[in-house]
């Protein structure tokens, strides 16, 4: 899907093993598949169905998403940063598209 815009905000870790707060937001209509258009036809479902956050290849959180998550999906969680490196955030769209964002950590 075109025009999808991810945003992430991650606290900066100040030492190895620190816990950081992560906030993520992505612009997406999260079309539920239950709405009808002006002619009464169902609008096909198109949502972000999965989101993952990894740090240096290791999983922080893996989220399975249903249509009841609001437009512009927002997630907030806490991650452990064991060593300098980077986060990879990945959003999976129903249409097969994948959107990513990263955040580097060093101190």
């Amino acid at each position: 899907m075109e025009g999808v815009r991810p945003r992430v905000r991650v606290d900066n870790a100040t030492e190895a093993g620190a816990s950081v707060e992560v906030k993520t937001l992505i612009s997406h209509p999260m079309e539920s598949g239950q709405r009808r258009d002006g002619d009464g036809n169902l609008i096909p479902r198109q949502i972000i169905n999965r989101f993952t956050a990894e740090y240096n290849g290791e999983m922080v959180i893996d989220i399975a998403i249903d249509p009841a998550v609001s437009t512009n999906p927002y997630f907030e969680f806490d991650a452990t940063v064991p060593e300098p490196g980077s986060f990879t955030f990945t959003w999976y769209d129903d249409d097969g598209d994948v959107y990513t964002a990263t955040d580097d950590q060093s101190w």
Partner: peptide, 12 residues
């Protein structure tokens, strides 16, 4: 609605 699966690097 949604399911959160926490990995080894989830701080909470």
């Amino acid at each position: 609605v949604v399911t959160f699966a926490f990995g080894p690097l989830a701080a909470a």
